[in-house]
């Protein structure tokens, strides 16, 4: 599964990589660079198109707050691991590149975990192992192999931020729906008025359970593909 995804991924950034020598390339937020940020939200979304990072997307989306923290953590890890690997890319011996990438990812994830334990202890308890498991999130290593190893630091950094945000965006959408229908709250605040409950409305317990996250994710993929006909596999 992982290898297949990686292969599929390599195709996508190939379009972006094609060098177009022009003055535009020197600008920090050129159209090309901005595309690196925006593509992961649409046609190149890591979760809905490349189907990566599903495990954590199911696990941390019961409530909105942990999903937000998870999204920020992944953005930090993808962004900075892409940046660091891109800076090192000409010095990394190809034979040990995977282990070097893993070392960088693992270091960043441990840093994020330590910082969370220090400043957001309650959330870090809720996220428990899933922060640590960012190390094994295919999105991070996929972007390092497919993009950071072959691109300059700034575009690599943007690509990392973009992919992390694309993942986080899906996480937040799923968590929004699950917390709203599963607990009747958003970020812990009651949003469904008491009168609804008195009229016989009940929270849907199925939304709390992981299977519903998979169904919600499936629906998002369905909606996404129906708006992007070129994503539909024949």
């Amino acid at each position: 599964m992982k290898e297949k995804d990686m292969k599929r991924q390599e195709k996508a950034p190939a379009k972006v990589q094609s060098p177009k020598p022009s003055g535009e390339e020197n600008r920090l937020f050129s159209a090309k660079n901005l595309k690196l940020l925006s593509r992961p939200f649409g046609a190149d979304n890591p979760v809905t198109v490349q189907v990566l990072g599903i495990c954590s997307a199911l696990a941390v989306t019961v409530k909105l707050q942990p999903a937000l923290v998870m999204a920020v953590s992944v953005i930090v890890v993808t962004g900075f691991s892409n940046l660091i690997i891109s800076l090192l890319r000409n010095t990394i011996p190809p034979r040990i590149r995977i282990i070097v990438q893993l070392t960088v990812i693992a270091t960043l994830v441990i840093l994020v975990d330590q910082v969370l334990k220090a400043v957001a202890y309650d959330v870090s308890k809720q996220l428990s192992v899933f922060v640590g498991l960012i190390i094994t999130n295919c999105i991070v290593m996929g972007r390092l192999e497919a993009f950071a190893m072959a691109n300059k630091p700034w575009p690599a950094f943007l690509d990392g931020i973009g992919n992390g945000a694309g993942y986080g965006f899906i996480l937040i959408v799923v968590a929004f729906l699950r917390e709203l229908f599963g607990s009747g709250t958003l970020l812990g605040f009651k949003v469904i008025p008491e009168s609804f409950y008195q009229a016989g409305y009940v929270n849907n317990g199925l939304f709390i359970l992981p299977p519903m996250a998979l169904i919600v994710l499936g629906v998002i993929i369905w909606v996404h593909r129906s708006f992007n006909p070129n994503l539909i596999e024949k």
Binding site: R95, V100, T103, T107, Q114
Partner: peptide, 21 residues
């Protein structure tokens, strides 16, 4: 080169992690 590279990397990572901890 590979041996030196990995040693350097590991030491750098260890220093960063120890400091944060």
């Amino acid at each position: 080169y590979i041996f030196l590279y990995t040693s350097g990397l590991v030491v750098a990572v260890a220093v960063v992690l120890a400091l944060t901890a």
